[in-house]
Simulated assay, not measured.
Amino acid sequence: MIGATGQTGRATVRALVEDGWTVTAASRGGGRDERWSGDVQAVRLDREVDAELAGVLGDGVDLVVDMVAFTAAHARQYAALTDRIGSAVVLSSGAVYADAQGRSFDTQDDPDGFPRYPVPIPENQPTVAPGDSTYGTRKIALERGLLALGDRLPVTLLRAGAIHGPYCRGPRELYFVQRNLDGRRTRVLAHGGRSRFHPVGVRTLAELVRLAAARPGSRVLNAGDPEAPTVADIGASVDAVMGVETETVLVEGGPPEPGVGLTMWSAAHPVVYDMAAAERELGYRPVTTYAESLEETVRWLVDHLRERDWREAFPKMAANYDLFNYSAEDAWLARREK
């Protein structure tokens, strides 16, 4: 397991051990999760160093699960090591998809740039072109490099939605959790609160990895929760876990002002992934829903934020997002009431 101490790796290690696998958990820090069984071997690995990856593989392994492969260079690593690997399961992303007009997540900030995908999105939907300029172009370059290995290395690529669960470095649920902790009882949601950006929990991803590990093959599969709730539904679910009551002000169209009504799920058009192929090819059946798995995420977030500012707890989010512009919200709400 490469990337074992990330949010998805932690859950997947447990699922594979429970399924009878002997797991070597590789990460840059070589750490462990306290919930892993004692026979999980934790090792240090800088996956950018080819010799280190080869050293961890040793004489060979039946399976590699990779949560941190991002580029064509990582696909080339596998090409040089196919004789040591039985099969692989590699995390990809729904960010690779493009719509019929070529719009993708890469164009979402352009005028009318947010993609209009079919609902749901099948795996044969067009994708962005491979390259090294964006997350999506790098991921599709990785995918194509791995699939080109054919019978030399069976690889299941999981195109994940918005990943959620404990230990996330960029938890979308923070938008609602922090507001509740700050005593904010009125919030604004753009697009009428109807935005749907398909989430996928770490337990769902772990189940898909477990099933793919037992059925090696070269394929691309979507990875999403059984349902894609609206952003308003997500806010209500967070409130239910935290035991608070809030008022939601729904605004049609985009954010009425910068910093008002925009969440990390907000989108002009729905993003929903078709899970039929995973059901058909792997025998996948849902193991949990978004709402059912939410309590673990919220409790972890509350504990992680205890007695420290959210910007200290999640520095990368603070550097990239303006999530809590309360002064702008209050000013807009005051003008709205006049």
Results as ranks from 00 to 15, higher is better:
L205M: 05
E207I: 00
L208D: 00
L208W: 00
L208I: 01
L208S: 01
V209P: 03
V209N: 01
L211G: 02
L211K: 00
A212H: 03
A212S: 09
A214W: 01
A214C: 06
R215K: 11
P216K: 01
P216Y: 03
R219E: 14
R219W: 14
R219D: 14
R219G: 11
V220T: 15
V220G: 11
L221Y: 01
G224Q: 09
D225M: 06
P226L: 04
E227H: 13
E227C: 11
P229C: 05
P229Q: 08
T230L: 12
T230I: 13
V231H: 14
I234Q: 09
G235I: 04
A236C: 08
S237R: 06
S237A: 11
D239F: 07
A240G: 02
A240D: 12
V241Y: 09
M242P: 03
M242A: 01
M242E: 05
G243L: 04
G243V: 02
V244K: 05
T246R: 11
T246P: 10
E247A: 07
T248H: 03
V249I: 07
E252S: 07
G253Y: 04
G253S: 02
G254D: 14
P255Y: 01
P256Q: 01
P256S: 04
P256M: 02
G261Y: 08
L262N: 14
L262W: 15
L262H: 14
T263W: 02
W265A: 08
S266G: 07
A267Y: 10
A267G: 13
H269C: 13
H269V: 09
P270D: 15
V271N: 13
V271F: 15
Y273P: 07
Y273T: 08
Y273C: 10
D274E: 15
M275H: 05
M275C: 10
A277H: 10
A278C: 10
E279N: 10
R280D: 14
R280V: 11
E281H: 12
E281Y: 05
L282D: 15
L282N: 15
G283W: 09
Y284N: 06
Y284L: 01
R285G: 14
P286C: 07
P286I: 04
V287F: 08
T289V: 00
T289R: 02
Y290G: 07
E295N: 11
E295R: 14
E295F: 11
E295H: 12
E295T: 13
T297A: 10
V298H: 01
V298R: 06
R299A: 07
W300L: 04
L301R: 04
L301N: 09
V302T: 15
D303N: 12
H304W: 03
L305E: 05
L305P: 06
L305S: 06
L305A: 06
R306A: 13
E307V: 08
D309R: 03
D309T: 08
D309F: 00
D309N: 10
W310F: 00
W310A: 07
W310Y: 00
W310D: 05
R311Q: 14
A313K: 02
A313T: 08
P315A: 03
P315N: 04
P315F: 01
P315D: 05
